[in-house]
Structure formats: C-alpha cells, structure tokens
Amino acid sequence: MSLLLTIVQTILIGTGVLFFLVGSIGLLRFPDTYTRIHALTKADNLGLGMLVVGLLPFANSPQQALKILLCWVLILAASSVSAYLVANKLQNEEPDA
C-alpha cells in the first residue's frame, strides 16, 4: 500500500514539476503577452496543484495539510486575478490591440 502511495506521489510531483518547466518554456517561447499569460497559468494551476496533492501525504497533521492546500488556493486566486488584470490593462492601454 505504501509502495503504491509512493508511486502515485512520485507521478504527481513529477508531473507538477513538468508543468512548471513547461510554463517557463512557454513564457520564453510564446510570441506575445496574451499567450504568455496562458503559459503562466498552467504552472500555477496544474503545476502547483499536482505538487501540492503529491506533498499532502507528507503533512504531519491535518492543520499542516490545510496550510498546504491553502497555499494552492491562494496562488490560484492570485494568478487568475492578475492574469485578468494584466490582460485587461493590455486591452485598454495598447493603442492597436
């Protein structure tokens, strides 16, 4: 059972880290700001999300587990709001957009 758990954790953390990497590469490779916002939110949502779920079994207490989950929820809110704000700002202020 614990072996199974370890395998699942490894897969989750590995995929999460992969999403971070993909997000960074997207940030570098995508041609304009809007597509870069898209790349970024993958890292926030999926990358950190999978990492958090993978790390949850390591928590020593339920409070700690909640703390870890809260980190993810906060980052989700922050990233979605800032993605919206930046896109909105670009839309309003770019002359030809």
């Binding site: 999460g16 880290v17 971070f20 940030l27 700001t33 970024l40 990358g47 950190l48 990492l51 990233s79």
Partner: peptide
C-alpha cells in the same frame, strides 16, 4: 507586462 508576468511565475515557483 511580460516582465511582470515572469515575476509572478517566480512567486508561484518560489512557493513550490
């Protein structure tokens, strides 16, 4: 905006 987005990524990755 691109620079700021990259800084945002720094925050998220830092948390990770």
């Amino acid at each position: 905006a691109d620079r700021m987005l990259a800084a945002q990524l720094f925050g998220t990755t830092g948390v990770g």
